[in-house]
Protein backbone atom coordinates (compact mmCIF):
# COMPACT_ATOMS: atom_id res chain seq x y z
CA UNK A 1 0.00 0.00 0.00
CA UNK A 2 1.20 3.47 -0.93
CA UNK A 3 -0.22 6.48 0.89
CA UNK A 4 -0.86 9.65 -1.08
CA UNK A 5 -2.74 12.86 -0.49
CA UNK A 6 -4.83 13.43 -3.58
CA UNK A 7 -6.75 16.69 -3.86
CA UNK A 8 -6.47 17.12 -0.14
CA UNK A 9 -7.76 13.65 0.72
CA UNK A 10 -5.51 10.90 2.09
CA UNK A 11 -5.76 7.70 0.01
CA UNK A 12 -4.02 4.34 -0.06
CA UNK A 13 -3.41 2.55 -3.31
CA UNK A 14 -2.29 -1.00 -3.94
CA UNK A 15 -0.61 -0.43 -7.32
CA UNK A 16 2.88 -1.72 -8.03
CA UNK A 17 5.37 0.99 -7.02
CA UNK A 18 6.65 1.13 -10.61
CA UNK A 19 3.20 2.12 -11.91
CA UNK A 20 3.28 5.65 -13.32
CA UNK A 21 1.17 8.05 -11.29
CA UNK A 22 -1.08 8.67 -14.34
CA UNK A 23 -2.55 5.15 -14.21
CA UNK A 24 -3.05 5.32 -10.46
CA UNK A 25 -5.02 8.53 -10.87
CA UNK A 26 -7.09 7.36 -13.83
CA UNK A 27 -7.54 3.65 -13.26
CA UNK A 28 -7.31 3.17 -9.52
CA UNK A 29 -8.73 6.47 -8.27
CA UNK A 30 -11.05 6.97 -11.26
CA UNK A 31 -10.07 10.59 -11.80
CA UNK A 32 -10.39 11.97 -15.34
CA UNK A 33 -8.34 15.14 -15.24
CA UNK A 34 -4.91 13.71 -16.02
CA UNK A 35 -4.97 12.49 -19.63
CA UNK A 36 -2.87 9.94 -21.46
CA UNK A 37 -1.25 11.65 -24.41
CA UNK A 38 2.14 10.08 -25.02
CA UNK A 39 3.38 8.32 -21.89
CA UNK A 40 6.79 9.74 -22.72
CA UNK A 41 6.95 13.13 -21.02
CA UNK A 42 6.59 14.91 -24.37
CA UNK A 43 3.09 16.41 -24.43
CA UNK A 44 1.92 17.45 -20.97
CA UNK A 45 -1.62 16.04 -21.29
CA UNK A 46 -0.98 14.17 -18.03
CA UNK A 47 0.28 17.20 -16.07
CA UNK A 48 -0.60 17.30 -12.35
CA UNK A 49 0.95 19.01 -9.34
CA UNK A 50 3.13 17.12 -6.89
CA UNK A 51 3.82 19.26 -3.83
CA UNK A 52 2.74 22.27 -5.86
CA UNK A 53 5.08 21.66 -8.82
CA UNK A 54 3.86 20.58 -12.26
CA UNK A 55 5.03 17.10 -13.31
CA UNK A 56 4.35 14.66 -16.14
CA UNK A 57 2.35 12.05 -14.25
CA UNK A 58 2.96 9.51 -17.03
CA UNK A 59 6.65 9.15 -16.17
CA UNK A 60 6.66 9.42 -12.35
CA UNK A 61 6.43 6.05 -10.57
CA UNK A 62 3.87 6.16 -7.79
CA UNK A 63 6.35 4.45 -5.48
CA UNK A 64 8.43 7.63 -5.41
CA UNK A 65 5.53 9.72 -4.16
CA UNK A 66 4.65 8.16 -0.81
CA UNK A 67 3.10 10.74 1.50
CA UNK A 68 3.16 13.52 -1.08
CA UNK A 69 0.41 15.98 -2.00
CA UNK A 70 -0.96 15.51 -5.50
CA UNK A 71 -3.39 17.90 -7.18
CA UNK A 72 -5.38 17.18 -10.31
CA UNK A 73 -7.79 19.51 -12.08
CA UNK A 74 -10.63 17.98 -10.05
CA UNK A 75 -8.94 19.46 -6.98
CA UNK A 76 -9.07 23.04 -8.22
CA UNK A 77 -12.81 23.53 -8.03
CA UNK A 78 -16.26 22.48 -9.12
CA UNK A 79 -19.01 23.89 -11.29
CA UNK A 80 -20.42 25.54 -8.19
CA UNK A 81 -17.06 26.84 -6.96
CA UNK A 82 -14.68 26.98 -9.91
CA UNK A 83 -10.99 27.67 -9.40
CA UNK A 84 -9.61 30.86 -10.91
CA UNK A 85 -8.06 29.07 -13.88
CA UNK A 86 -11.15 26.95 -14.51
CA UNK A 87 -13.29 30.06 -14.50
CA UNK A 88 -10.88 31.86 -16.81
CA UNK A 89 -10.70 28.97 -19.29
CA UNK A 90 -14.49 29.05 -19.56
CA UNK A 91 -14.60 32.84 -19.85
CA UNK A 92 -12.02 32.80 -22.64
CA UNK A 93 -13.52 29.65 -24.23
CA UNK A 94 -9.95 28.38 -24.21
CA UNK A 95 -10.67 24.92 -25.58
CA UNK A 96 -11.50 23.24 -28.83
CA UNK A 97 -11.40 19.49 -28.32
CA UNK A 98 -10.34 20.17 -24.73
CA UNK A 99 -8.14 17.10 -24.45
CA UNK A 100 -5.09 19.20 -23.54
CA UNK A 101 -7.08 21.53 -21.30
CA UNK A 102 -6.70 19.89 -17.90
CA UNK A 103 -2.95 19.52 -18.43
CA UNK A 104 -2.70 23.17 -19.48
CA UNK A 105 -4.62 24.28 -16.41
CA UNK A 106 -2.36 22.28 -14.10
CA UNK A 107 0.80 23.56 -15.80
CA UNK A 108 -0.55 27.10 -15.38
CA UNK A 109 -1.49 26.43 -11.76
CA UNK A 110 2.13 25.41 -11.13
CA UNK A 111 3.26 28.69 -12.69
CA UNK A 112 0.85 30.88 -10.71
CA UNK A 113 1.91 29.24 -7.48
CA UNK A 114 5.47 30.46 -7.96
CA UNK A 115 4.79 33.61 -9.98
CA UNK A 116 1.57 35.42 -9.20
CA UNK A 117 1.79 37.95 -12.03
CA UNK A 118 3.59 36.41 -14.98
CA UNK A 119 4.14 38.27 -18.24
CA UNK A 120 2.81 36.76 -21.46
CA UNK A 121 6.37 35.65 -22.26
CA UNK A 122 6.62 33.89 -18.91
CA UNK A 123 3.24 32.21 -19.48
CA UNK A 124 4.33 30.96 -22.89
CA UNK A 125 7.64 29.71 -21.53
CA UNK A 126 5.93 27.89 -18.67
CA UNK A 127 3.43 26.21 -21.02
CA UNK A 128 6.10 25.15 -23.53
CA UNK A 129 6.13 21.47 -22.36
CA UNK A 130 2.41 21.12 -23.15
CA UNK A 131 1.14 20.46 -26.65
CA UNK A 132 -2.18 21.56 -28.14
CA UNK A 133 -3.01 20.21 -31.59
CA UNK A 134 -6.18 22.26 -31.97
CA UNK A 135 -4.24 25.52 -31.99
CA UNK A 136 -5.89 27.00 -28.90
CA UNK A 137 -2.58 28.47 -27.73
CA UNK A 138 -3.49 32.16 -27.72
CA UNK A 139 -6.76 31.64 -25.86
CA UNK A 140 -4.91 29.54 -23.29
CA UNK A 141 -2.37 32.32 -22.72
CA UNK A 142 -5.24 34.81 -22.36
CA UNK A 143 -7.02 32.55 -19.88
CA UNK A 144 -3.91 32.23 -17.72
CA UNK A 145 -3.42 35.99 -17.76
CA UNK A 146 -7.08 36.51 -16.84
CA UNK A 147 -6.79 34.06 -13.94
CA UNK A 148 -3.64 35.74 -12.66
CA UNK A 149 -5.34 39.13 -12.75
CA UNK A 150 -8.46 37.81 -11.05
CA UNK A 151 -6.36 36.25 -8.35
CA UNK A 152 -4.46 39.48 -7.77
CA UNK A 153 -7.71 41.35 -7.41
CA UNK A 154 -8.95 38.69 -5.00
CA UNK A 155 -5.76 38.93 -2.95
CA UNK A 156 -6.13 42.69 -2.88
CA UNK A 157 -9.65 42.31 -1.54
CA UNK A 158 -8.61 39.68 0.98
CA UNK A 159 -10.01 36.59 -0.74
CA UNK A 160 -8.12 33.71 -2.27
CA UNK A 161 -9.56 32.12 -5.35
CA UNK A 162 -6.66 30.28 -6.93
CA UNK A 163 -8.25 26.96 -6.27
CA UNK A 164 -9.13 24.95 -3.26
CA UNK A 165 -6.54 22.26 -2.89
CA UNK A 166 -3.65 24.09 -4.51
Amino acid sequence: MIRLIVNGRPVEVDDEPSTPLLYVLRDTLELNGAKFGCGLGQCGACTVLVEGAAVFSCVVPVGDLAGQRITTVEGLGTRERPGALQHAFIEEQAAQCGYCTAGMIMRAQGLLERNASPTDEEIRAALEPNLCRCGTHLRIVRAVRRAAEARQRAVASGLSSLGRAG
Binding site: L31, N32, G33, K35, T72, V73, E74, G77, T78, R79, P82, Q86, F89, I90, Q93, A95, G98, Y99, T101, A102, I105
Partner: peptide
Protein backbone atom coordinates in the same frame (compact mmCIF):
# COMPACT_ATOMS: atom_id res chain seq x y z
CA UNK B 1 -19.74 26.00 -25.63
CA UNK B 2 -21.82 23.42 -23.78
CA UNK B 3 -19.03 20.83 -23.76
CA UNK B 4 -16.31 23.00 -22.22
CA UNK B 5 -17.21 22.90 -18.48
CA UNK B 6 -16.94 19.09 -18.26
CA UNK B 7 -13.45 19.40 -19.71
CA UNK B 8 -12.17 22.03 -17.30
CA UNK B 9 -13.60 20.35 -14.20
CA UNK B 10 -12.26 16.90 -15.03
CA UNK B 11 -15.69 15.32 -15.43
CA UNK B 12 -16.21 12.36 -17.74
CA UNK B 13 -15.93 14.03 -21.12
CA UNK B 14 -14.07 11.65 -23.44
Amino acid sequence: RVDVPAKVFGERAF
